[in-house]
Nucleic acid binder design. Sequence first.
DNA 1: GTATTATTGCAACATTGTTGCTTTAGTGTA
DNA 2: TACACTAAAGCAACAATGTTGCAATAATAC
Lengths: 126, 126
Amino acid sequence: MKKTRNTQKQDFVIDILTNAKHTMSVEAILKAMPIKVNKTTVYRILERFAEKGKVHFVTGEDGKAYYALCNDCNIKHEMHNHIHFQCKSCKKVTCLPYEIDVPELKNFEIQETQFLMIGICDMCIS
Amino acid sequence: MKKTRNTQKQDFVIDILTNAKHTMSVEAILKAMPIKVNKTTVYRILERFAEKGKVHFVTGEDGKAYYALCNDCNIKHEMHNHIHFQCKSCKKVTCLPYEIDVPELKNFEIQETQFLMIGICDMCIS
DNA sequence: GTATTATTGCAACATTGTTGCTTTAGTGTA
DNA sequence: TACACTAAAGCAACAATGTTGCAATAATAC
């Protein structure tokens, strides 16, 4: 296992994701940063956290990656079988408390799952 | 309903997707074209077909859009509740014959679904 | 304090997709 | 067939997201 260091910027990313009510794009995380941080830094912080299982991400319909803290992942081979919802109005991607039963696929090795539903969220539907 | 025209290039796109064993990126479709076609043209052809329900697309983990012919869609509000599988080895995205039971979400308007599983496909697992 | 090296910053780049505008070419009508 | 209309295609420039290599900075161990 590679050695790691604790840095203020990593802590800020964790703080931001902890307080987030929905998954966040890198752009959104950058804007939420209380200090100036380079985008490459945020990409690499998230990359490291994803490897460690601290965060997970979904790819939105828009092709952008959206990150969220992992609440109950095991460190390795974590599966994220809950559903994400992307709102076409406010663009936010939310983790929903629904689990999907993943079918067993013979001769396929499943490493990750991304279940995304797209439409209008409860906040925007009014 | 807007008038449409039949063109050779549109036909080629349909031919290519018909013969495809898996979903295709715009880049792959361009390469498969027997004649030179501008990428904007392919994007717009696919956009029109998606509106008409002739094709559907999934966004891969890589953020790219992958297109496939629709076999049994109704023209409007089509739902594509089958699973797609993206292979990390060969990068191909395949439509799998599994349907997902979509939960009812109160106060959410669900317009589309994208269920993606990521790993190693049966051709690459050897 | 000093050495080591993980982390960050910077600049340049790659890729995917989009936009505005002009040109080309299907289609209907005479 | 000739013409008008306009959908479709082409082109160039752009935007957004994400990546890479390398130099600078700073966290940790000694």
